[in-house]
Computed example of a mutant assay.
Amino acid sequence: MDTLETRLERLERRCRRMQGLTFSALALAGLGLGAAALRTSPELVGGELVASRLVLQDARGQQRALLGLDDSGSAGLVLNDGQGRPRALLGVAEDGSPRLRFATAEGESLAELTVYSDEAPRLTLSKRGGVDLFAVGLQVDGSSRLELADADGRPRAILGADENGSPGLLLVDRRGQPRVELRVSPADDASLRVEGRDGEVFRAPAVIQ
Rank of each mutant, 00 (worst) to 15 (best):
L110V: 05
L31Y: 08
S185V: 00
D141N: 07
P98Y: 04
M18T: 10
E48F: 07
G47C: 06
R179Q: 13
G84M: 07
G68M: 06
V140T: 14
G196V: 01
S185L: 03
V50I: 13
L8N: 10
E108F: 01
G165Q: 01
R85N: 05
A206M: 04
R99W: 00
D70G: 01
R145P: 00
R179C: 10
A111K: 01
V50H: 11
A65F: 06
R17W: 04
Y116P: 00
L8V: 08
L38M: 02
R60D: 13
L79Q: 12
E108C: 00
P121H: 10
S166M: 03
L192D: 06
V140C: 09
D81G: 11
S24P: 00
Y116K: 08
S24T: 11
E119I: 07
L11Y: 05
D118W: 06
A111V: 13
L123D: 09
R101P: 00
D189Q: 11
L123K: 09
R174M: 05
D152R: 15
R193M: 06
L90T: 01
R122P: 00
G142L: 02
L33W: 09
Q83R: 08
R179K: 15
T40Q: 07
S72Q: 11
V55Y: 05
A111M: 13
D189W: 05
T104Q: 11
A190F: 07
D118R: 14
L4P: 15
L146M: 13
P155C: 03
T114P: 00
V207F: 11
R128A: 15
R17H: 08
S72E: 12
L182R: 02
P205T: 08
D2P: 15
D2Q: 14
G82A: 15
R64G: 07
P42N: 04
S117K: 11
R16D: 13
V136T: 10
G73H: 01
L38E: 09
P121V: 07
R87G: 01
L67N: 02
S97H: 03
R179T: 08
D162I: 07
A35V: 03
S117R: 14
P98G: 12
A27K: 13
A151E: 15
S191F: 07
L44C: 06
E94S: 12
L31D: 09
L54G: 01
S143E: 00
V50L: 07
R122K: 10
A36H: 13
E119Y: 03
